[in-house]
């Protein structure tokens, strides 16, 4: 557990003005790490906020979100010595591949 805490944690980036408060991500988050804010964004919707901890970088909130620009998930990965440069898509790819198997 200690080791887990010592590395940088994944986290969602939520663009609050893009959120329409549909609640899909809150329901889908495995670790219950998202909640609906009581405040309104500029378009007049409540918006989702990250509770600050609990994100495991699964990307479920991103995938279930109907707004393409509302959520990003940032996942720190230990740099591989030989393969320093990897494209962002690889995570998505690996997630999908797992499912496919």
């Amino acid at each position: 557990m200690n080791k887990y805490k010592e590395r940088p944690q994944p986290f969602p980036v939520i663009h609050k003005n893009e959120c329409k408060a549909c609640d899909r991500c809150v329901i889908t988050c495995k670790n219950n790490a998202l909640e609906m804010s009581n405040e309104l964004n500029d378009s007049g919707y409540n918006y989702v906020i990250y509770k600050g901890e609990g994100c495991i970088g699964c990307g479920n909130c991103y995938y279930t979100c109907p707004e393409p620009l509302a959520i990003e998930v940032h996942i720190p990965k230990r740099r591989k010595k030989d393969k320093a440069e990897n494209s962002d898509n690889n995570i998505v790819e690996s997630n999908i591949n797992k499912k496919e198997e």
Partner: peptide
């Protein structure tokens, strides 16, 4: 040691 991978649009 770390790099950030981003799941986004």
């Amino acid at each position: 040691e770390f790099e950030t991978k981003i799941i986004k649009k």
